[in-house]
């Protein structure tokens, strides 16, 4: 089912959580709402679910106005950040809940409920835990049970609030791959909220980057990563070095390096360069930035160098371990930095 969010605004006292937001979610897609905490992404998700009412604007489910539809009747599945499993019920009863509370006329028979619950528990690969209580499960298991419970009511939309936020890194990676596969099998329109850019880029069909109650950019993971629309998106989607500069004749100059800029003459500009998009060299070229290596740190397969550059903060450079060893780079050594890619934005 497609969802249209039409000029939605929401305030909490003086705090503007959502500011005139416009968003279309296609049927069957897996969409990520990405942004720092306080950017309004969870509020938007809760408004879609009906757990929060917008101050202004409209929500359309499949073209029909659902703004005033009660959460009970929206037929959405919601997975809470801290799972919100019913602590006094077994896993089986948790999953069966949505079926048991249906009005008598539409409530399935006991055998039908049993079949359905076991089918869902097999889907999340936890059928063997049916008689346990939530307190007896690990975080990853709880999250999958929460998902099975949400799917039991056959929702038309699946909403997930920081679904992997409370899990450790390894489980988180497993679960997000698993969620992607599950979505590919079920094709249910899904929206998930995250502050982890890697998670959004890996799992989602499209990413919505949000900041301060507004949408900064909407696009596929490649689009938002390769062509960030704003400095915020660029900074949020990975580590970044910034150089302050002034524009001359359409070029922003940093040391001896020059980058094409759209800003007008002698305007201030900021040049962004990702740490892994910088080449190191011992030979001065006319486009390079001079500096001295001040620190090196091994991070598994990569090495992160800090280079002191005149008129700039410390510049981070990331190399693969092999390149680092081939180059034989030493702390204290003077080097030249050649940015392969850079983005120039007018300074705010």
């Amino acid at each position: 089912m497609s969802i249209a969010i039409n000029a939605i605004s929401k305030r909490f006292g003086d705090f503007v959580a959502l500011d005139n937001l416009q968003l279309d979610i296609a049927s069957g897609e897996l969409l990520a709402l990405l942004g720092p905490s306080g950017c309004g992404k969870t509020t938007l998700l809760r408004i879609i679910a009906g757990l929060e009412t917008p101050d202004q604007g409209q929500i359309l489910f499949h073209g029909e106005d659902a703004t005033d539809t009660h959460v009970r009747e929206r037929q959405v599945g919601f997975v809470f950040q801290h799972y919100a499993l019913f602590r006094h019920m077994t896993v089986f009863e948790n999953v069966a809940f949505g079926l048991r509370v249906r009005p008598k006329k539409t409530r399935p028979s006991e055998t039908e409920i049993k079949r359905k619950v076991h089918e869902l528990l097999s889907l999340v690969q936890l059928d063997w835990l049916a008689d346990r209580y939530p307190a007896q499960l690990s975080g990853g298991q709880r999250q999958r049970i929460a998902l099975a419970r949400a799917l039991a009511v056959e929702p038309k939309v699946l909403l997930l609030d920081e679904p992997f936020g409370a899990l450790d890194t390894k489980v988180r990676k497993e679960l997000r791959r698993w969620l992607r596969r599950l979505h590919d099998e079920m094709h249910i329109t899904s929206v998930f909220v995250t502050h982890d850019q890697e998670e959004a880029l890996e799992v989602a069909d499209r990413v919505v980057v949000m900041n301060k109650g507004k949408i900064e950019q909407i696009g596929t993971p490649e689009q938002v990563y390769d062509a960030p629309a704003t400095p915020f998106v660029y900074q949020f989607l990975g580590d970044v070095n910034l150089f302050h500069s002034r524009v001359h004749d359409g070029w922003a100059e940093v040391g001896a390096a020059r980058f094409a800029a759209e800003a007008g003459d002698s305007d201030k500009a900021v040049v962004y360069v990702r740490p892994h998009e910088i080449e190191l060299s011992r030979v001065a070229t006319d486009k390079a930035i001079a500096g001295v290596i001040s620190h090196s740190r091994l991070l598994g397969a990569t090495v992160r160098l800090e280079v002191d550059v005149k008129d700039a903060e410390v510049v981070e450079v990331e190399l693969t371990r092999e390149r680092y060893q081939e180059g034989g780079w030493q702390v204290g050594e003077p080097v030249w930095l050649n940015p392969r890619e850079a983005r120039v934005y007018p300074a705010a």
Partner: peptide
């Protein structure tokens, strides 16, 4: 949270309270 989860799953106010 648990009450909200119950509501999303379609429980009425009474069902939410008792269950």
């Amino acid at each position: 949270d648990e009450e909200q989860a119950a509501m999303v799953l379609g429980a009425s106010g009474w069902q939410m309270f008792w269950r």
